[in-house]
Design a protein around this nucleic acid. Structure first.
Lengths: 327, 327
DNA sequence: TTGAAAGCGCTAACAT
DNA sequence: ATGTTAGCGCTTTCAA
């Protein structure tokens, strides 16, 4: 900026005025400055600017499990849309479900003075964030509430969605309904299990724990869990898959299996309607999770000090075939 | 930092030494400082640090078309992996194929002093970047070369991949092979068209332009283009789909159609093997594009001044059924 | 081993 | 309408 001032033969402050479109600069002077800016290829240094103004970096920090998973990339997209409208940029990082990595990312985000944090939390203890929150970094959690911390969170109706899946299968005559779920350290896995149980119990059916397999964190694990269930002496006639990766694994296992088993998944799948067994799923708008969370964060940054919010987004069952296989 | 110094009863510089693990601090003094840091919840301000050290923000700026497209989210993941190893963070933004938006993003990235730029370019003129490059921002392009600018780029073997798709269809007896491609403003669309032509010409078959439909930028457009081709008086017996969205659209159209038409797509599809018509595709590792580009950028940032590189990644045809439908 | 002072690029407050 | 000065939070240089 000093260089521009010298080149234009004006003072530093005048350049600053022009760059920031402040009033009180004669058009001719401004032209002189613009000219020098163009010649020198000057770009305002936002770091210095933010430093001086006591601002943060006009950036949102997003921690997700894995950008390359469609669920998380949709969230990222939703966050980005809202951020963009407010002139904010998004730094995203994948935690791979590792609490240590999550903490490391958040630490780096805070050192870079992000304006706010959006986190799909891994692990069950987020008290380490208290410090950052006290220091003025706002945070909104996505998809799962944080552990041992009261904070804003945007969730899916996991229990209701899972229940609707089970009810759908019950309505098609199934009584032996199995479930394959993710690690029980993961909030959504536990909630969906709860919805599964509720659905059965409301129909007066005892939950048979031998039909429940948790701990399947990837498609491969889900595929073998499905095979296990199917090779039981009295196998289930229907399955509820706790998330997209699990549904993929279950579909693979079922495609190699001659028996027809009904399947409802949680999370929509791309191309679900074109599958050999078009997948019936509990669906919702994943980008909406990102959008709602980013909007809530934006409100906080704008000074909203109401007590922690809990936003729950609805789910809808989409019947495509795999869930309508009758017993 | 001043606060910490006061709380610990030492000078600013001593705190700086402790925070940066510089030598020459007595353990007891360091303990005093660490204590104060803990009490006050101090976090080093990276903006101020970078400003003083004449550094940039230890951040990479990534411009892609749309994070929620699996192709781009895989690239993002690849970039992130490499960045992480080097202690860098990634700011990503979606251009939605809009050159203006791309420029806006790059401008914001430069204002925030990203260390380097990774860009999947939209539009055909990137001379506006010359300025930034001269000022020391390094850039590597991904998937498409920039327009009117010599720069590092990491590409796919589009021509070879498209040719292999056509050759595969020829080997299965097809002679009337249609192609559906993206906008002709997009580099990969043009290259893949070239590969398609080459494949036919090498086999001594004249290209029939009535079997080629370009301009399909989403699945819906691809779906209707496919229907158009199929309702021709002499319809093609096989199709080459220029990218993942187009393959999805083509698959939808084919699923409603009784005739069996062979299909090979460019880009792999999730669940491709579980589709009613398991998709034969030209595949490659999209994350590798991101990784290679980020590595090349890292080399540039480390001082590598060799002339612009052009890295081309191979493709491989994966036969799953849809491409083996015989004429 | 520790500290004081200067300055990175910018803006806020106050001159002129 | 334009310029001067101080200082954001840190590191660098030099001194004690």
């Amino acid at each position: 900026m000093t260089d521009v001032a010298n080149a234009a033969g004006v003072s530093l402050k005048t350049v600053s005025r022009v760059v920031n479109e402040e009033p009180g600069v004669r058009p001719e002077t401004a032209a002189l400055v613009d000219d020098a800016i163009e010649r020198l290829g000057f770009r305002r240094n936002d770091m210095a600017r933010a430093l001086r103004r006591g601002q943060r970096s006009r950036t949102l920090g997003l921690v997700i499990e894995d950008v390359s998973n469609p669920f998380y990339s949709a969230i990222t997209r939703g966050v980005e849309e809202v951020a963009r409208k407010r002139g904010l940029l998004v730094i995203a990082g994948s935690s791979d479900e590792d609490p240590h990595r999550e903490r490391e990312l958040i630490h780096m985000f805070c050192e870079r003075r992000v304006d706010g944090l959006l986190v799909v939390p891994a692990g069950d203890d987020h008290r380490y964030l208290l410090r950052e929150l006290e220091l003025g970094t706002r945070a909104v959690f996505i998809d799962r509430p944080p552990g041992k911390l009261r904070a804003d969170v945007v969730l899916l109706d996991n229990v209701g969605g899972a229940r609707s899946a089970v009810e759908h299968l019950l309505a098609h005559g199934h009584r032996r309904i199995g479930m394959i779920g993710d690690e029980k350290t993961i909030f959504t896995a536990v909630e969906r299990l709860r919805g599964y149980r509720e659905g059965l119990e409301r129909a007066g059916i005892d939950v048979d724990d031998s039909l429940v397999r948790l701990g399947a964190h990837d498609a491969e694990a889900a595929e073998s869990a499905t095979r296990e269930l199917l090779s039981l002496p009295k196998p289930p006639t229907a399955l509820f898959a706790g998330n997209n990766r699990i549904a993929v694994g279950a579909l693979r296992a079922l495609s190699l299996n001659l028996k027809r088993v009904a399947l409802v998944g949680f999370d929509d799948l791309e191309l679900a309607e074109l599958l050999a067994l078009p997948a019936t799923v509990v669906s919702y708008e994943p980008a909406e999770l990102g959008r709602e969370a980013a909007k809530l964060l934006a409100r906080r940054l704008a000074g909203d000090e109401r007590p922690p919010q809990r936003i729950v987004l609805p789910t809808a069952l989409i019947a495509r075939g795999s869930g309508e296989v009758r017993r």
